[in-house]
Amino acid sequence: MKTKILAIAAGAAISMVAAQAASAATLDDIKKKGHVQCGVSQGLAGFSNPDDKGNWTGMDVDVCRALGAAIFGDATKAKYTALSAKERFTALQSGEVDLLSRNTTWTATRDTALGLNFAGVNYYDGQGFMVRKSLGVTSALQLAGAAICTNTGTTTELNVADGFRADKRRYEVVAFEKADEVVQAYDKGRCDVYTTDASGLYSQRLKLANADDHIVLPEIISKEPLGPVVRQGDDQWFNLVKWTMYLMLNAEELGVTSKNVDEMKSSGNPAVKRILGVEGNFGENLGVGNDWGYNIIKQVGNYGEVFDANVGPDTPLGIARGVNALWSKGGIQYAPPIR
């Protein structure tokens, strides 16, 4: 009896200590366990989507793959946890995932009160509306009184409420937890309107029974800077995620691609030398090998390649670069220099 109690007490004490130590250096934990644990969506083509063999692809997935390449020199060293919009922050806060790369909008509340840090923006987006063509609606301003389907726990839900509250229009919002249920409910006629990030509309539209019967309205009602998120209080890990994204942007700027990266290694351009680890110790400063940049570009590609391969004009989503073009090409994607 006594020994049993003692054992329980000791066990409890140990688990307390363990629980308190869990928020230590994420990067060390990742190296120990041998992979990056990445929180992604439950399936959003072009951003994070599993195929029938369970392999994930998409722009958000490529952030995780790039981290695998940076840390282990192997882009496949990333594992994925599918999270609904509602679950995602709790999963990150509790340490279930190392980062969230799941079309998540950077907002003040999330960046502060939720104890999170946004490591940058991998896709500048805005919220749009989709309706049935047969309704004859041509503008979001004609939507007063409509039933609107959307996801709970999203900025989308809040933006709609703001918009209709501002000009006192009546509306009915039907908010589901899972994206597939939203699509199904909209498709079956529960709602007149489906609203989410414009990128999400393009992607979810592919799931509708008859995609051609629907149109996306021209209005964009919000700013949705989407990017990867980490927990607050671990600057080393935050830096690595942030600079991994910057590296991919810098590579695009310098014309370094997954195809020419080997030749580029012998380039005379010092900036190229720095991002590929030929010169300097930028990797070391981030806690990874100096060839991190080479590995990322070789295995995943630069930002432009990732964009084109997943959501670009040649994919089913067919999204133009638009604001996501480099700053030097009329867009707003701008990365601080690696030097």
Partner: peptide, 24 residues
């Protein structure tokens, strides 16, 4: 209820509000 968007306590409070405020 949460599966079909009926706004019960778990869906709107332990769901939406939790997500919005993070105060699990």
């Amino acid at each position: 209820a949460v599966a079909i968007a009926y706004p019960d306590l778990v869906s709107v409070f332990a769901g939406t509000v939790l997500n919005q405020t993070g105060q699990a």
